[in-house]
């Protein structure tokens, strides 16, 4: 087990270098210059533009820039400096990350509890009316685009009923985060419940479940331990990759509810050609994905005793 983890951790290194290099090259390939962009229509003094470009190393060849950048990250945990504001990227990350973590975490809990709950509920009643209605609800949730759902919820709960605030003014207030978290969770929630339902329905007919029932085990134990453990493997796989998506892909939801998180920061960095900020953000997301997938693989062994890592 220890050797397996070590191997996986070592594998992360090339993946990490590859992704950051790719992103660095892509940002570099985009037309537009972040320093020139600071000046807009008015044009700026060429001396200042040259001085700024020099300060941020933009006058160096791309690979030298990449090398310096990686050196900074690895040796000093220094993710560089934002060109516009002159603030360290780590500060910018520090502003955005807690907000996104809270929102993403909240959405993840909703997705986990409701998704698996609905899936088990439907799976145990496969083919019956309850199953069909869950199917319909989840299909609906999958097919409605996020921003439509966001606007509908806002209109009902904020404009008409006035139960909730339309936007997030204080990102530490979970009451205000409720609506965006629900919106963010819905699509994944539907996938989770579909996956759980299929897996449960299939395993219900498996030999080991029949054996368990025949042994006279209580239904709660059959479902909760024998059935669930096996059925959750595909669900866990999906959940693992979804963590990254919840953290990085919340651009639309963040925009609708005016949450100043990672998604919006990524968007803004692309628009402003803030390569260093962008690479910093994505590097962290890459790390999140890598760690999540490692955890998922390790969870397999916990869930299914037949899986062993030597």
């Amino acid at each position: 087990m220890g050797r397996y983890v070590a191997r996986r951790l070592l594998q992360m290194i090339p993946v990490f270098i590859g992704t950051t290099l790719l992103i660095f090259l892509m940002v570099y390939a985009l037309p537009g210059d972040p320093v020139r962009g600071l000046f807009g229509d008015k044009g700026g003094s060429p001396q200042v533009i040259a001085a700024l470009r020099h300060q941020y190393g933009l006058d160096q060849p791309i690979l030298v820039q990449y090398w310096d950048y990686m050196k900074g990250i690895i040796l000093h945990a220094d993710f560089g400096t934002q060109i516009g504001s002159g603030r360290p990227v780590t500060d910018v990350l520090g502003d955005a990350f807690p907000v996104t973590l809270r929102l993403g975490g909240f959405a993840f809990v909703i997705e986990l509890v409701l998704g698996i709950g609905l899936g088990v509920f439907a799976g145990l009643r496969a083919g019956r009316a309850a199953d069909t209605s869950v199917l319909m609800v989840t299909l609906l949730l999958i097919s409605v685009p996020v921003f439509v759902l966001g606007f509908i919820l806002k209109w009902i709960f904020a404009d008409e009923l006035q139960w909730l605030e339309p936007n997030v003014n204080d990102p530490t207030n979970y009451g205000e985060l409720l609506m965006p978290a629900i919106v963010l969770a819905t699509a994944s929630l539907a996938y989770v419940s579909r996956l759980t339902r299929t897996s449960i329905a299939e395993n219900m007919r498996a030999d080991y479940v029949r054996t368990a029932i025949a042994k006279g085990l209580p239904r709660r134990r059959v479902v909760g331990v024998h059935l669930m453990r096996n059925s959750l493997i595909p669900v866990v796989t999906y959940l693992g990759t979804d963590i990254g998506a919840l953290l990085g892909g919340a651009v639309v939801t963040e925009g609708i509810f005016n949450i100043q998180g990672i998604g919006g920061t990524i968007y803004q960095s692309i628009v402003r050609r803030e390569g260093t900020t962008l690479v910093g953000l994505v590097t962290i997301l890459v790390l999140v994905y890598l760690v999540a997938s490692l955890l998922v693989d390790l969870l397999y062994a916990v869930l299914d005793p037949r899986i062993r890592y030597a």
Binding site: L30, G32, D33
Partner: peptide
């Protein structure tokens, strides 16, 4: 042009 930066560039 995709965005203002690209527009300015041109």
């Amino acid at each position: 042009k995709a965005d203002f930066q690209a527009d300015l560039d041109a």
